[in-house]
Write a protein that binds this DNA or RNA. Structure first.
Lengths: 335, 335
DNA sequence: GTCTGGCACTCAGTGTTCCCGAGTGCCAAG
DNA sequence: CTTGGCACTCGGGAACACTGAGTGCCAGAC
């Protein structure tokens, strides 16, 4: 139904439109890409492509512009991810290697990605649920008040102040700390609730109340933070492209929930592309998202990606996202 | 040089321009504000005000618009901070009271302020330098690797992974932890360096090397983080007002350094207003900043504020900033 | 001296018209 | 199936006039 030349025409339309940002006409197209046929022939092909819904014209007597469906076909079958240059890889590596803690890794990553793609970058913090406990610390602050600190294997640190029902001596707290760590060290966060239930049943009577208070806060921490943390950067890159709808996009970026859904569900470690109206949030039609999961080694910890105009250079963007996701994975595995 | 009526005219020009966003003419002005004089008289006054540089006309045959100098006079002498309504106060209070940790306080604050003022809100994390140490924790991760966690009285938590030169048993680490906490508890962060120097001299010979490594990382943490953390929200509110220059503004917002300077130096606890070209960064002429310090009790921990078009409602904005700064102070003092 | 009404002047913004040219669709011939 | 030719469409820019809000200035009133 679409022969090779028609596909070549579609590819040419996408490439030209992406680079010029202007509707592309049959003549210019026949010249710039050596298709070996005349403009008239190209016109016929374009008419077919338009009929099938892959391209459209903004108005009569203008060139053609790809539709979302057209971009989709381009991404799926007509393009290859473009790897980064050696210089770019090295730049990424050295830039990320300078990070001192998790916060820093995430901040650097999001800025790097924004700069690399000249679009808006979005990075999700490593998911608590898929992490494991590295250490639990109880810090006495006052007689009836302690601070609970939870450290995960991905370097994430969560803290809560806990008010106790009664005054508790430091050594009982120290003991609880030891027990907690013995139980939880290396324990996957998703298995923490059951582990804690077990633990509490085994505690001596007099510690039950205190421990109950602390453990319930610990559980709360896990549940609350199920609402994952997510950041973005590069909003300034929007200013060039968009004119209308920019407000919608900015609003979407500030909604954690929307942002989460934007990056999509865990995929089979390949790159996800969402084009225009494929996006879940209506304010983001007209934008595309390229996202991938990242993690240390095999399991996906979280996701990152970029958001830009539908009219973006998909091969390059996908290359950048893939590369950054890999390097972040390495960094997290190494620390 | 400027009699009362001329000042009243200036005030009227500012107020009308702020609310309509259109150059205001003599006729409309004489009608809407009951100045008790004719348009012709107002025209004469406006001519004087223009000559003095308080207002200007975009082009001949248009109304007048306040200049930066005009806004300055308005803010300094012609307006009063407008307190929030009771409902708004209560909303602030309940919204901030729900915060679970420092991160949460800051995030909620910045969103609140953005929503309240319908502008871009900027909040600086409580300064490390002016905080005091609440606790230092050393967590063994592996034989030659520990995690250093620093908790301040403002609830801020800093962490670093430290690689040790030699394997160290846990009890030596526990001992060092005890010593560190004994020395540093309640110590102002600015005094930490000297305190640590003292401490190291008093340590037993065999602990020197290990302790040196740890302490130097601790010092690094303080120095590095001297570059303070700062966040913003409400970028979507820019989309309505600005058309050109928006890119500059967004870029400025993503530059930590610019953002820092934006909020200004510690002031004598009053509200700072920077109007248009008074701003340090040239991309931000055309915008104004209203900022204030906040803190628990007497000492200023950090600053917060909003950024908006020069044409903003200063009395209302100042009221909101002041109120939020106060409540955040209370919250931080209470936890 | 200060205020006011009158009047001529200026000019941004809008609407109208006209024209150009890029690009199209269609058709008949190769 | 491809190609050149041709009539057609229509967005966008240039030229133009018109309108009206707003101004500056002046002479007379208070």
């Amino acid at each position: 139904m679409l022969d090779d030349r028609k596909l070549a025409v579609l590819r040419a339309v996408v490439e030209d439109y992406v680079s010029t940002n202007e509707p592309v006409g049959s003549k210019a197209l026949a010249e710039r890409h050596n298709l070996g046929v005349s403009p008239a022939t190209v016109r016929n092909d374009m008419a077919v492509l338009e009929e099938q819904g892959y391209i459209t014209q903004p108005h009569t007597s203008a060139g053609r512009v790809p539709t979302d469906k057209g971009y989709r076909l381009f991404v799926d079958r007509l393009s290859q991810i473009k790897p980064l240059s050696g210089a770019e890889r090295r730049a990424i590596e050295t830039f990320l290697a300078g990070a001192v803690d998790l916060d820093d890794v995430v901040t650097r990553t999001v800025r790097l990605l924004a700069q690399l793609t000249r679009q808006v970058a979005v990075v999700q913090y490593p998911s608590l649920i898929r992490s494991t406990v590295r250490h639990v610390e109880l810090v006495p602050l006052a007689e009836r008040r302690i601070m609970l600190v939870l450290i995960t294997n991905t370097g994430r640190v969560e803290q809560r102040v806990v008010d106790l029902p009664e005054a508790v001596e430091e050594d009982r707290i120290a003991h609880l700390r030891a027990v907690l760590n013995a139980c939880l060290d290396g324990c996957g966060l998703s298995r923490v609730p059951e582990t804690l239930a077990d633990l509490q049943a085994r505690l001596p009577e007099e510690d039950r109340e205190m421990a109950g208070t602390i453990l319930s806060v610990l559980l709360e921490t896990l549940v609350e933070r199920h609402e994952e943390k997510i950041v973005f950067a590069g909003a300034a890159n929007l200013a060039g492209d968009f004119t209308v709808g920019l407000r919608d996009v900015l609003e979407a970026l500030e909604e954690q929930v929307v942002l989460m859904r934007l990056l999509g569900e865990a995929s089979d470690s390949s790159i996800m592309v969402r084009i225009g109206s494929e996006n879940p949030y209506s304010g983001l039609h007209g934008t595309s998202v390229v996202a991938a999961g990242y993690g240390s080694g095999d399991n996906e910890l979280a996701r990152l990606g970029v958001l830009g105009p539908t009219r973006m250079d998909y091969p390059v963007t996908m290359g950048a996202v893939r590369a950054v996701a890999r390097y972040v994975g390495h960094i997290l595995a190494g620390s």
